[in-house]
């Protein structure tokens, strides 16, 4: 079964690049620029992994993670100098993030899933 990945960032370019680069036979990626849509959609599908941007319009990635109410691992993406978060993210990736590192995270989750 494919790994179901959600990617949330208000920069449309980053969403498109992520989807184009990492989509594969083993990975299905759904991208969102709107936090509310991501929260809504995660109720219907059951994502295996989340990538969430920190600075979002009217909210932040920490608050979104808290309100997602999911058990799947979440990674925070951030361009800030420093962030304080309450949610126990599995990792925090600083922008500009390393694609190799993301590939490794994805590979690891595929292994876990199978």
């Amino acid at each position: 079964m494919k790994l179901n990945v959600f990617f949330l960032d208000d920069e449309i370019d980053l969403c498109e690049q992520f989807q184009e680069f990492f989509s594969s036979e083993q990975i299905a990626i759904t991208v969102f620029t709107d936090p509310l849509k991501a929260i809504e959609e995660s109720k219907h599908q059951k994502p295996d992994l989340f990538f969430i941007d920190y600075r979002l319009p009217n909210t932040n990635g920490d608050l979104v993670a808290l309100s997602l109410n999911q058990t799947a691992p979440m990674y925070l993406l951030t361009g800030e100098i420093s962030v304080n978060v309450y949610y126990p993210f599995k990792g925090i990736l600083v922008k500009p993030y390393d694609f190799k590192q993301i590939q490794e995270i994805l590979d690891l989750e595929i292994q876990e899933k199978n």
């Binding site: 690049q17 992520f18 951030t78 361009g79 800030e80 600083v94």
Partner: peptide, 14 residues
């Protein structure tokens, strides 16, 4: 900082 790192991330992705 945020506004510089975001376009940097886009450049990197491209």
């Amino acid at each position: 900082a945020h506004e510089i790192n975001n376009p940097l991330a886009i450049i990197n992705g491209a």
